[in-house]
Design a protein around this nucleic acid. Structure first.
Length: 275
DNA sequence: TTGGGTGTTGAGTA
DNA sequence: ATACTCAACACCCA
């Protein structure tokens, strides 16, 4: 589900809810979510007693900073965090519960169980997988058109595939890539090395504009995404192509078509986005 | 009823 | 190197 704007919104809403809370216990109902350490008893032991100090984000990853360690969490398709009273019964797809000393709990819910958690001693989180492989965050000032130009012009891959590749730029997913390429007037099947300097600049600028706008609108809710207060995003009202198959293009009026690129549904106006 | 599709990403294969 | 398929999993819809 969540791409950069959704994860950023979750970070902002969750930060206020967990800061200063001390972990009394951790319950794990689906161990496959815990990727490091592989021993879930060790995972629990390390976390117990620590206090949540801050939350950061890189690309689509949440970084929970505790006293001595950092919990790196990826929500994949449908992961969600929410705060509850301990007495409140857990929902159907709650897989990890962090019980706090004040009688509340942070619960991780994930219908499809694709999400991941990695625990690192502070200082090691960025130099080891999964974060070590990421390119610059799409909203960081290190994401420049110069850098994008260097990475794109030496590959023959489709631009859509490149923008989904988190080692090139971190944070874009299927919705926002389609929106970015429409705004930049670039066809998703254009190859990296076919792009002009001007097109790459347009892609970089569209990325920043769209993502900032989407963060400001609280993200995009298509079916299940909510922030950690349970509120929906509003950016779905501003989508130009994603989910608009057969609807008229807002620029030229021709119908948006849906094609498949590396297994992902891709929405494009073949009139506005030249190949 | 069943197969195809879903906001992600790694592995395997040709 | 690249593009595709599958797998992880549950649910929704035509």
């Amino acid at each position: 589900m969540p791409e950069l704007p959704e994860v950023e919104t979750i970070k902002n809403t969750l930060k206020l809810l967990v800061k200063g809370k001390q972990i009394k216990d951790v319950s794990i109902y689906w161990p496959n979510i815990i990727k490091k350490p592989t021993d879930t008893e060790k995972f629990k032991y390390i976390l117990t007693g620590q206090v949540f100090r801050d939350i950061d984000r890189k690309g689509k990853f949440l970084l929970f900073y505790l006293d001595d360690d950092v919990l790196v969490s990826h929500l994949r398709m449908e992961g969600k965090y929410s705060i509850h009273q301990s007495e409140e019964p857990a929902k159907k797809h709650t897989h990890v519960i962090f019980t706090f000393t004040d009688g509340t709990e942070l619960r991780y819910n994930d219908v499809r169980k694709f999400g991941t958690m990695h625990l690192f001693p502070k200082g090691y989180e960025h130099t080891e997988q999964p974060l070590s492989k990421l390119g610059p965050d799409a909203l960081a000032n290190t994401f420049t058109s110069t850098l994008l130009y260097e990475k794109l012009t030496k590959t023959t891959r489709f631009i859509k595939t490149c923008l989904l590749d988190q080692t090139i730029v971190a944070g874009l997913g299927n919705i926002y890539v389609d929106e970015v390429l429409f705004k930049a007037s670039v066809h998703p099947l254009k190859r990296g090395n076919e792009l002009t300097n001007k097109e790459i600049q347009a892609i970089q600028e569209a990325t920043v504009l769209i993502l900032k706008n989407a963060v400001q609108k609280g993200g995009t809710t298509i079916r299940s995404y909510t922030n950690s207060h349970g509120e929906m995003g509003m950016f779905q009202q501003h989508l130009s192509v994603y989910g608009k198959e057969d609807e008229p293009c807002i620029t030229c009026g021709n119908p948006i078509v849906k094609i498949k690129i590396s297994g992902r549904g891709s929405h494009v106006c073949t009139t506005c986005q030249k190949k």
